[in-house]
Design a protein around this nucleic acid. Structure first.
Ligand code: MN
Ligand code: MN
Ligand code: ZN
Ligand code: ZN
Lengths: 128, 128
DNA sequence: CGGATGAATGATTGTCGTTCTCAGTATGGC
DNA sequence: GCCATACTGAGAACGACAATCATTCATCCG
C-alpha cells in the first residue's frame, strides 16, 4: 500500500510553489537550501509518482532535462511557456485536439496521441 | 570555412536512406556495419550541423534520445510518427500555425514558437 | 501501547546519451 | 606542392537519471 511520507509532501509543496516548469535537480537543491535532508533519488521518485497520478505535467527541455509543473488534475490541456522566466499558462484547445485526431485518422494511424507546446516571451520579459 | 568531407556526406546519405527518425548511435552503428570507419563524435557533429542548416528535423524520444530525420528544406511542417516502426508523415497545418500565434498573442506573449507532434500506430503496425 | 512487516528512503554506484579533449589528418586556397 | 587550419576520432569526461541495498519508519494488528 502507498505510504504517506513528509518527503512526498515536501516535493508536492515545492512543486506548487513554483510558477513554471522545474527539474528534479532544481527542486532538490531548493529543498536542501531550505534545510531539508531529502535525497535526490526520492525527489525523482516523487515526481514520477506525481506525474503518473496526473498531479504533475512534464515536458523535456531543449537540453533533454525533464521538467515538471503542478497541474490542474483531470483535464487534458497544454502549455504556453515563457522561454525567459518560465511563466506558464495552461491552455485548452478543442480545435487542436480534433485536428490531431483527424490527421491521424486521415493517414490510417490509430491510438493517436500528441505533443503540443507553445513557447514565447511573456509580457514582462518582452518589456525588458 | 566549411570543408566538405566524406564523413558529412555519409551521414547525410544514411539519414536520407531512413524512412523515420533515427538516433546518432543508430546511424553510427549502421555506417560501421556497412564498413565505414566514421567516428561517433563525427556523426553527432554532422547531425547537429544538418539540423542547424535546416536539412534535418529533430525531436526527442520519450527516453530523451534525440532523433533526426532528413527534411524537406524550407517549408515549416510537423510530423505524424508511428510509435512502433517509426514511419513518419510530414504534415502541414496552417490552422495550427494560426492557432499557436493567436494563443500567444492573447496572453501577451511575443516571438512565439511551438512544438507539435502527433504519434500513433500506423496502418501496418495496427494490423499486427 | 509495543512489535512485526515491508514500503520508502538516500548515499552510493551504475548506465547511457552526449560533449569535450587533443593529437593526428586531410581539405581548400595559394 | 605547401601551408594554415578545419575536421576527425578514440577515449575521457560529463550529466541526468535509474538501480542497489542497508537502514528507517509508516502502517497494521493484537
Ligand atoms: Mn491536446
Ligand atoms: Mn507549426
Ligand atoms: Zn517571462
Ligand atoms: Zn508503424
Amino acid at each position: 500500500m502507498r505510504r504517506n511520507t513528509w518527503q512526498r509532501e515536501a516535493v508536492r509543496e515545492a512543486l506548487g510553489n513554483n510558477e513554471g516548469f522545474v527539474s528534479a535537480q532544481m527542486l532538490h537543491s531548493g529543498l536542501r537550501e531550505a534545510g531539508s535532508s531529502i535525497g535526490l533519488a526520492t525527489v525523482y521518485r516523487a515526481l514520477a509518482d506525481l506525474g503518473s497520478a496526473g498531479e504533475a505535467d512534464s515536458l523535456q527541455s531543449d537540453q533533454g532535462e525533464v521538467l515538471y509543473r503542478a497541474c490542474t488534475p483531470g483535464q487534458h490541456h497544454h502549455h504556453l511557456i515563457c522561454r525567459s522566466c518560465g511563466l506558464t499558462v495552461e491552455i485548452e484547445a478543442d480545435a487542436v485536439e480534433a485536428w490531431a485526431h483527424q490527421v491521424a485518422a486521415d493517414n490510417g494511424f490509430t491510438q493517436p496521441s500528441h505533443v503540443v507546446d507553445v513557447f514565447g516571451m511573456c509580457a514582462k520579459c518582452s518589456a525588458d
